[in-house]
């Protein structure tokens, strides 16, 4: 009898320890995220098991796929959120409708808006999450990521001009106020778009684009045809200039989490 109870206790402890870095005595908060980005971030911080639901297309890491969903990024269902009775709803300020926060307040659900438009915001938001929600005593994971970023950026001393293409037609670029642009800037890059431009993904005229060739032209795509098409066009538009064309896989670079930080230096090493 005693042996059985002891085994149960061991199993329980292992579940709690394995589930998340939360203290065993601490109540596990129930979290809902409203975007795939936030889902990925929570898993990266080591608290994936606290998620009770998330938005559609939360496909990374694999465990996220099995979570129940509360609707799509732009149309989250308040009814579904309420049904899960979460302790916190993490709202992606970039994409989730602003009305959701008001609605959540009305139904007395705590929500936290997360901004992820720069590398700095990624770290500060992560720190907020770790300290305020998960009551983490140590921020080891963030310290490691900071060190990793610092050592990676040190290698790159060369300055270069770049543009990031989100879509070819209509020609839509990543503005300065995007996470990806900020990340590449940390490695010595300068986004050719005017830094006063507030739009995150501005549609720009092709004439301006042709007149301002970058050193590296990034294209967010998984499809080889898109890259080939841009390569063909680049040869026409800039026959006398060397424009390095680099594909960024959306699997690694579309979401402002720690994943792009892990892959960008390898890409830039090849490109430069």
């Amino acid at each position: 009898m005693f042996l059985l109870s002891f085994t149960k206790l061991l199993v329980l402890c292992s579940i709690i320890i394995g589930a998340s870095p939360l203290e065993a005595s601490q109540k596990v908060p129930k979290i809902i995220t409203t975007s795939p980005t936030l889902t990925e971030l929570i898993f990266q911080l080591g608290y994936g098991k606290t998620l009770v639901a998330t938005s559609e297309f939360s496909d990374y890491p694999k465990e996220a796929k099995s979570l129940p969903t509360i609707g799509s990024l732009f149309y989250p269902s308040l009814e579904k959120i309420v049904r899960f009775s979460p302790d916190y709803v993490l709202v992606d300020s970039e994409s989730t409708p602003h009305t959701l926060v008001t609605q959540l307040n009305k139904v007395k659900l705590a929500s936290i808006s997360i901004h992820l438009r720069s590398v700095e915001e990624l770290f500060t938001s992560s720190k907020t999450l770790l300290q305020e929600i998960f009551r983490a005593q140590h921020l080891t994971i963030l310290e490691e990521k900071t060190k990793q970023l610092q050592s990676n950026t040190k290698i790159f001393s060369k300055n270069f001009r770049f543009l990031i293409v989100a879509w070819i037609s209509p020609l839509t670029l990543f503005g300065n106020s995007t996470f990806l642009s900020d990340l590449i800037s940390k490695y010595g890059g300068q986004n050719l778009l005017n830094s006063n431009l507030q739009a995150a993904y501005p549609q720009v005229s092709l004439e301006w684009f042709v007149k301002n060739p970058p050193d590296i032209l990034f294209l967010l795509t998984n499809q080889k045809e898109n890259l080939d098409e841009l390569q063909r066009l680049a040869q026409k538009w800039w026959p006398n200039q060397k424009v390095n064309l680099v594909a960024l896989s959306p699997d690694y670079f579309a979401r402002p989490t720690f994943t792009p930080l892990e892959h960008i230096s390898a890409i830039l090493k090849d490109a430069l």
């Binding site: 149309y75 879509w167 037609s169 967010l220």
Partner: peptide
Amino acid sequence: ISLQNHTLGSGSMR
């Protein structure tokens, strides 16, 4: 369009 993965929005809106 609304069923698409909106990680970066959609070019289809054009």
